[in-house]
């Protein structure tokens, strides 16, 4: 089990002093699905980026904590008592990823010349390695001992380089996950998001989450611009993350539509850099009917 805790989070744009987050309080636990809704400019995407460590934002107050229980990362990694709570704001983006944070991008980067397979295997291995470093036992490195076996890659598949997960093993994992998401296997050899359609990019974000098996996934408008078929594929992928891997989901969305497929346990409404209102799934439906002005009125007594 893992729990992400945002408390009194204030943030502004690093260059300039435009305040964007003005005291966000939010908790997301493994296995839960939270929907974070709100009008444009209310701070939803900034919240996501600050959690992941985007360098363009500066946190001026508050905390982002990640609480882990023992065996969050399986039996091989022992999490001592004093390593159960991490202040994410002290960590680099890749260290946060190693601790199980995943950000699904609203606009995923297009990266020419780096294949999906190469990137994802590198990411997976880097994550495993970084995790071992973060939890390294001071008395010695336990993880090291079991490493030597592993898969040998065939000479046909490029250099048998470093990394816990070898090329052949990774191909197996990737193929399985792509089938689950009904993705064409040719994606594996394409360059990362390069020339992908909007829908393909979003599907690819969910695929990457499935492979990296995060404890907490923040998905920033993963549903925008999807046709109904792809919306269903993406929704199935998100549900599988929660059901099979116990991932806690923070789903940022503009639209009620995806919530029909990915049913939230909790719904939060963000206004002016704060969580203005929280509730169950019925809150989303009410928003659909009444709009955000109703929340504003309800909370501040003015529209």
């Amino acid at each position: 089990m893992a729990r992400l805790e945002l408390s009194n989070l204030h943030a502004e744009v690093a260059e300039g002093d435009e305040k964007i987050l003005e005291g966000v309080d939010l908790e997301v636990e493994s296995g839960e699905i939270h929907a974070l809704m709100g009008p444009n400019g209310s701070g939803k995407s900034t919240t996501a980026k600050v959690i992941a460590g985007h360098p363009a934002y500066e946190v001026t107050e508050g905390e982002v904590l990640l609480h882990l229980e023992d065996e969050e990362f399986g039996e091989d990694i022992e999490i001592d008592e004093d390593q159960r709570t991490w202040n994410l704001l002290d960590l680099e983006p890749n260290e946060r990823a190693a601790l199980g944070i995943f950000l699904g991008f609203q606009y995923p980067a297009e990266i020419e010349g780096v294949t999906m397979t190469n990137f994802l295997r590198t990411a997976l291995n880097a994550k495993i390695e970084e995790r071992e470093e973060l939890f390294e036992d001071e008395d010695g490195d336990e993880a090291e001992e079991e490493e030597d076996e592993g898969f040998e890659s065939s000479p046909m598949e490029g250099p048998a380089d470093e990394g816990e997960v070898g090329v052949a093993e990774f191909q197996g994992i990737l193929q399985e996950k792509m089938e689950q998401l009904e993705m064409d296997e040719k994606f594996a050899q394409r360059y990362l998001n390069a020339g992908f359609s909007g829908g393909e990019k979003k599907q690819n974000e969910v695929l990457q989450a499935a492979i990296l098996e995060p404890s907490i996934a923040v998905l920033d408008e993963i549903d925008s611009g999807l046709d109904i078929d792809r919306l269903q594929d993406v929704s199935n992928g998100i549900n599988a993350l929660r059901d099979e891997q116990g991932t806690g989901i923070l789903q940022i969305t503009h639209y009620q539509r995806i919530l029909d497929y990915v049913e939230p346990d909790h719904v939060h409404v963000m206004l002016d850099g704060q969580i203005a209102k929280s509730g169950g799934p019925e809150l989303a439906e009410k928003l659909e009917d009444k709009g955000y002005d109703w929340v504003r009125e309800d909370v501040y007594g003015t529209a």
Binding site: A52, N94, F102, A109, I111, E112, T122, A126
Partner: peptide
């Protein structure tokens, strides 16, 4: 940031981007 947020350390991410640039 996209690459590091997926777990790739900044140095490897940069190297991958440069190698990709030459592709």
């Amino acid at each position: 940031f996209y690459m590091t947020s997926r777990g790739v350390d900044p140095r490897s991410a940069r190297n991958m981007l440069v190698e990709g640039f030459f592709v």
